[in-house]
Structures are given as C-alpha cells and as structure tokens.
Amino acid sequence: MTITLRPGTTVMFTGDSITDSRRLESEDGLGFGYPLRVAGEWAFRHPDRPVTWLNTGIGGHKVRDLEARWQPDVLDARPDVVSILVGVNDMGWHTLSQDGYVIPTEDFAAGYDRLLAPLAEAGTELILIEPFLLPITATVEAGDAHIDAEVRKEWRADLDPKIQAVRDLARKYGALLLPADDMFAELSAQTGPEYWSADGVHPTPAGHAALAAAWLRLVE
C-alpha cells in the first residue's frame, strides 16, 4: 500500500528533534534532515507534480507536547498527508533529566491515538514512523549524565512496547508504517550503528538519507 501524491498535495512532517532538524534556521523551514531530503528527491523525480512540504517538528517534544499544539500546528493547516515521528523522548531518556519524566505505554498510546483520531476523521492520509534506538556501545555525555550500553538497555526495554503501540495504531487507522527501528537494526548489522547515529537517537546524514529513502518508498 502506498499514498499517491498528486499535484498540489500538502504534506506535513511533525514530531521531535529528528524531524525538526533545525528547521527554524533553514531558508525553506524544512530543516536539514530527512524532510528536506524527501522534498528534494521528490522534486527531482516529479517536476510535474509539485507538492507543498511543511515541517512542525520541535526538538525535545513528546506525545503530550504534540497534543498541546496539535490544533494550531497541524489541524489548522489542513494537510493532505501527515507524517509523524515521536516517541524517543517518551522513553527512559528523560529519567536522567531533572523532570524525571516517565510515561506508561498505555498513556503514550492513548495520547498518540488522540493525535490521530481527528486526522482520520478528516480523511487525512497518515504515515507513522517508528521511534528507534540504535545499539551503539560508546558512552555519550548528556549534561551531568553518562549514557552507556547499560542505560540503553533500560531505554530499549521501555521503548519496545511503545514501538509496538505505534504499530498497533497504524493498523487501527490504516496508516502507512515506516519500520525505522527494524530498518536501523538491519543497517547497523551491516556497517555498525555509529554510521547511522552517533548517539543512538539522532541520525547522521546517512541516517537521515536512509529515513528519506524509506519514506519515499511509501508514496507514489
């Protein structure tokens, strides 16, 4: 199953920092990551089918943050296609920060569902990108915290059921699913995970290219 992007289609990318990719610093507002790569490659392949591309990703955002801004940032724009990547900030990542944020999978799924319901009711096409965590072994400094392989094991245990929740929601709403976690696991087995993400979360340029290529396989 694919989504057909007809001339004049409006596509919105939204989510956290992976989608944001410093969009406010970019001339076209798409940032410097996979949304820009998708838009550029589509324009190259299909000059006869112009598409309007929007990006409302914000670094650090969780499902609850998307909910708080969903109406003005997403629904009011009335996009034809919405692509969502959120969830990595809803895992144990933020238990290392001062807010100690933890959200049970059931609450994560319920919040995500509330994002999708009005879009589905409006007939918006949906693309859900799995949150992902690459199995890098290097220790990364995050403020006063030291993120090592043991910490990532805890994160993985927390993230896996949330990935499954995204898959379940894709089935519920007939959305296209981009299995990014599986994709990066396969790629990492070939080259090593650091090639795709230095910290296991934020993609390298190659990682963004992989996301863009996978995204483009979902549309025609």
Score class of each variant (00 low, 15 high):
residue 212 A to L: 06
residue 188 S to M: 09
residue 103 I to Q: 15
residue 178 L to T: 00
residue 194 E to Q: 10
residue 139 T to V: 13
residue 89 N to R: 06
residue 162 K to A: 01
residue 185 A to F: 04
residue 215 W to E: 02
residue 69 R to Q: 07
residue 195 Y to P: 00
residue 111 G to Q: 06
residue 41 E to I: 03
residue 16 D to P: 06
residue 84 I to K: 01
residue 124 T to H: 06
residue 14 T to S: 12
residue 141 E to I: 06
residue 67 E to F: 00
residue 51 V to N: 06
residue 218 L to R: 14
residue 144 D to K: 13
residue 208 H to G: 01
residue 166 V to L: 02
residue 5 L to S: 08
residue 199 D to I: 07
residue 155 W to L: 11
residue 204 T to H: 09
residue 47 P to C: 01
residue 52 T to A: 14
residue 79 P to C: 06
residue 149 A to P: 02
residue 180 A to E: 03
residue 148 D to K: 07
residue 183 M to L: 15
residue 90 D to R: 05
residue 160 D to G: 00
residue 22 R to L: 11
residue 56 T to H: 11
residue 110 A to H: 10
residue 108 F to N: 01
residue 184 F to I: 09
residue 45 R to H: 10
residue 191 T to F: 13
residue 111 G to V: 11
residue 84 I to E: 02
residue 106 E to Q: 13
residue 144 D to S: 13
residue 10 T to L: 05
residue 171 R to F: 01
residue 89 N to Q: 05
residue 46 H to F: 12
residue 91 M to P: 04
residue 92 G to Y: 08
residue 195 Y to R: 15
residue 103 I to V: 15
residue 94 H to A: 12
residue 2 T to L: 04
residue 176 L to F: 02
residue 77 A to E: 10
residue 208 H to C: 06
residue 88 V to F: 02
residue 16 D to I: 01
residue 91 M to L: 07
residue 53 W to R: 08
residue 70 W to F: 13
residue 44 F to Q: 15
residue 84 I to L: 14
residue 105 T to Y: 05
residue 163 I to S: 01
residue 200 G to L: 02
residue 129 I to R: 11
residue 104 P to A: 14
residue 102 V to H: 14
residue 73 D to E: 15
residue 127 I to V: 15
residue 33 G to Y: 13
residue 213 A to S: 12
residue 201 V to M: 08
residue 217 R to W: 01
residue 58 I to G: 00
residue 131 P to F: 05
residue 26 S to V: 07
residue 162 K to H: 05
residue 154 E to V: 13
residue 1 M to K: 10
residue 95 T to E: 15
residue 185 A to G: 00
residue 79 P to M: 11
residue 118 P to I: 10
residue 155 W to H: 03
residue 200 G to E: 05
residue 42 W to D: 05
residue 130 E to W: 04
residue 182 D to S: 13
residue 13 F to H: 09
residue 29 G to Q: 09
residue 188 S to A: 14
residue 170 A to M: 07
residue 77 A to I: 05
residue 29 G to E: 09
residue 145 A to H: 13
residue 88 V to A: 08
residue 102 V to R: 15
residue 59 G to A: 12
residue 214 A to G: 14
residue 146 H to Y: 12
residue 149 A to Q: 12
residue 130 E to I: 03
residue 125 E to C: 06
residue 51 V to G: 08
residue 150 E to P: 00
residue 14 T to I: 08
residue 45 R to S: 07
residue 187 L to T: 05
residue 156 R to Q: 15
residue 181 D to I: 04
residue 190 Q to E: 14
residue 27 E to I: 03
residue 131 P to C: 04
residue 170 A to I: 06
residue 76 D to W: 02
residue 46 H to T: 08
residue 14 T to V: 03
residue 120 A to Q: 03
residue 202 H to V: 01
residue 106 E to S: 12
residue 198 A to R: 13
residue 138 A to W: 00
residue 100 G to S: 11
residue 30 L to K: 03
residue 198 A to I: 10
residue 182 D to Q: 15
residue 179 P to G: 07
residue 14 T to H: 08
residue 96 L to T: 10
residue 110 A to R: 14
residue 199 D to E: 03
residue 209 A to D: 14
residue 200 G to K: 02
residue 122 A to D: 10
residue 182 D to L: 11
residue 73 D to V: 07
residue 136 I to T: 11
residue 130 E to G: 03
residue 74 V to Q: 04
residue 200 G to Q: 04
residue 207 G to L: 06
